[in-house]
Design a protein around this nucleic acid. Sequence first.
DNA 1: CGCCATACTGTATATAATCACAGTTTACGG
DNA 2: CCGTAAACTGTGATTATATACAGTATGGCG
Lengths: 204, 204
Amino acid sequence: MESLTPRQKEIFEWICQYKQTQGLPPTRMALCTAMGFHSPNAAESHLRALARKGVIELLPGASRGIRILTQPDHPEGLPLIGRVAAGDPILAQQHIESYYPIGAELFHPRAHYLLRVQGDSMSHAGILSDDLLAVHQTTNVSNGQIVVARIHEEVTVKRYFRHLNQVELRPENPAFPIMTIDLTQTPLHIEGRMVGLIRSSWHS
Amino acid sequence: MESLTPRQKEIFEWICQYKQTQGLPPTRMALCTAMGFHSPNAAESHLRALARKGVIELLPGASRGIRILTQPDHPEGLPLIGRVAAGDPILAQQHIESYYPIGAELFHPRAHYLLRVQGDSMSHAGILSDDLLAVHQTTNVSNGQIVVARIHEEVTVKRYFRHLNQVELRPENPAFPIMTIDLTQTPLHIEGRMVGLIRSSWHS
DNA sequence: CGCCATACTGTATATAATCACAGTTTACGG
DNA sequence: CCGTAAACTGTGATTATATACAGTATGGCG
């Protein structure tokens, strides 16, 4: 965690303690009265600072929309990545949809995040739509492995094969086409490698 | 805790899961959309009922003022069932191979244990050998659901279809035969129903 | 010195959210 | 058959809350 000022640390710890004892995050007003502020904006700007430094996340528009990102709250949890916007790194704060109570070390190598699978292109490998893919964040992948790749803004899960500058991303479903990428022409980002799978809902 | 109705239990578990994954309690509206209510009062009265039965506390006037008082069993993980010996109930102590750090309330309805899948008879449903099946312990299953069944000492995972006293246990792989059981002749134990899946290792 | 970040005060407003009131339907026990 | 509880629909008022805008003061840094 990026270094907090003494005041910010004090406020952060109060927020953690509030949530621990009250069972829910505080409002801006509660923070004001606790810290002796006379303006709600004092709380607001402190929260913004804490969010900017990555120790909390603010959910816009939601009352008590304060999510604590470091230890005491999400021990052993993995973040679930939602929609991925252009350009941003996949594990950016704004992509985190929620946290799942799963030990990262359950997977080998360890998982860094979960990604919701969209579509049936890997259904013959037992990966169905809406499954959560456990991903180990690395660019170091070998032929035949199932990887999370990104071309421009599109994130996709496929089996990876590379020959020199040609990369093939093969689906595991004959209904979908093999994608062939020339690395000298199209930028390809390897976001990570599949290390596991969780299915917690499906249509009968 | 005073006995909850099935619906109330379902709602209570959803609230717990929401708080676990989102880091804060839900609003009435969130509960409505999750459960399919068209009226905020449906959520309100359910919350009142849960508060009256003592499993939650409502903080009047506070947004998201829901405090969870009794955790639905949280013994840090789900037991993984190993080989099942004749006669004993499947969740008996001696069958527990290890515990996996996974929140039981991640699944709907909640999982009671994990079972290691042996063989490829359900591979077309995305269930591969060595996957861990999350199982909700119940005998109340409907046609078409994927169930854990036991005939004598053999535990099997199949899709369940019943017509009167005839039960069909259908694999999801044409290479395996459909099992047909006459309940008047062969005892069949339904051990539970699939509510999820975890894959933490597989061959390449 | 000017520039920027931290740490606030004070006011205002749109909206998020609770919660009351008035109904309907289904099921179950006396 | 009546009463009661569970499980909802639908509307609307009130208040709780987030958050923009406009300031002030202080201290560190190049």
